[in-house]
Design a protein around this nucleic acid. Structure first.
Lengths: 158, 158
DNA sequence: ACCTGAACACCGTTCAAGT
DNA sequence: ACCTGAACACCGTTCAAGT
C-alpha cells in the first residue's frame, strides 16, 4: 500500500458514499487496513483531500480557449460524486490547484485565472449539491442552474 | 432560550474558536445547556448554519452600485471569524442567501447576481483562510490577495 | 413546552508494541 | 519501514424521563 493506493481508495469511497462519509476510517476499511496505517503515508486528512483534488483535476487540459478549458474543469469535477466540494475545500487551503491556476494565468492573467477558478469551482459545487438535494426530493429542481454556467462564464470572459 | 439566543451564542463560539470547533456541543456549553436542548429550537446543525449565515449578511445593503454592494457583503463576512466559510456552506445548501441574491438580481440580472455572489463569497473565503494560515506561519503571506478582490470585481462588472 | 441524562454510532489522530 | 490494537478526546443526534 502506498500514497496512490490510498488516494484511489479515497476517491472510490467518495464516489460511493459522498463527502460526508468519506472518513479516514472508511478509507482504511476499503483497504482492509487499520485507520492508523494511513498516517504512515499521509500526514492528515487535509493532505489526503489535497491529493484527491489533484487527481480529480489532473487530466484537465488548459489552452487558449478559456471557455472550453473551464467546461473541461467543470466536467472533471462533475465526473465524481462531490468532486467540486473536494476541490473547493482543498483549493481553499491552496492544495492541489496551483498548477491549474498557473496554466490558466499563462493563457490570460493572474486576475482572470483566479476569478475564473473561483467561479467554475463555486458554480459546479452549487450544481452538484443542488442535483443531490433534488434527487432526494429535498428541493424542487431548477432546470436553469445547469445552463446558467455558460452564461456566467460569458459574463466573465466578455 | 430561543432560536435567536442560539444563533447569537453560535456566532460567539464561531468568532472565538472558529468553524472547526463550532460544534453543537460547544454552542450548548456556551448557553449552559445540554446539547440535546438545542434540538427543541433548531432541526439540526445545517439549519443552524443557515441561520448564522442569514445573520452575518443581514445588515448588507444592496443598491444600484454593485461594486459597493459587493464590498459591503465582503466586509460583513470578514467581520467575523470564518464568516465566509459559514456563508459558503449555507449558500451551497441554498439557505439564508436567497434574499440577498434576489436583491442583487433586481439591480442587475439573475445571471450577474449569481456570478457575483459566487465570486464574492469564494474570494472572501480564500482570503479569510489565507489570513489564518499566514497568521499561524503555515504559509507565506500574499500581499496581493486582498487588492485582487477589486480587480476581479472589475473584470466581472465590466 | 422545554430541558436533562444517558446512550448510540460514529469521528481524527497518537502511540506503544509487534513484524 | 510498515502495520496493529488500543486508547484519547471528541462529534451529531435521539429519546425516555422529568418539570
Amino acid at each position: 500500500m502506498n500514497r496512490d493506493d490510498i488516494v484511489s481508495a479515497a476517491l472510490e469511497v467518495l464516489d460511493t458514499w459522498g463527502m460526508e462519509f468519506c472518513s479516514m476510517r472508511r478509507v482504511a476499511g476499503a483497504l482492509d487496513v487499520q485507520p492508523s496505517a494511513l498516517y504512515h503515508h499521509v500526514a492528515n486528512k487535509q493532505t489526503l483531500l489535497g491529493l484527491m483534488a489533484e487527481r480529480i483535476v489532473a487530466g484537465v487540459a488548459v489552452d487558449a480557449d478559456l471557455m472550453a478549458s473551464s467546461r473541461r474543469l467543470r466536467d472533471a469535477m462533475l465526473a465524481i460524486r462531490d468532486g467540486a466540494e473536494v476541490v473547493a475545500t482543498a483549493s481553499a487551503f491552496r492544495l492541489g490547484l496551483s498548477e491549474l491556476e498557473g496554466d490558466l494565468a499563462k493563457q490570460s492573467s493572474t486576475d482572470l485565472a483566479r476569478t475564473l477558478l473561483i467561479y467554475v469551482v463555486g458554480h459546479t459545487q452549487a450544481t452538484q449539491l443542488h442535483r443531490q438535494a433534488s434527487a432526494l426530493g429535498a428541493i424542487e429542481a431548477d432546470p436553469d442552474l445547469d445552463p446558467s454556467f455558460d452564461r456566467g462564464l460569458t459574463i466573465l470572459l466578455s
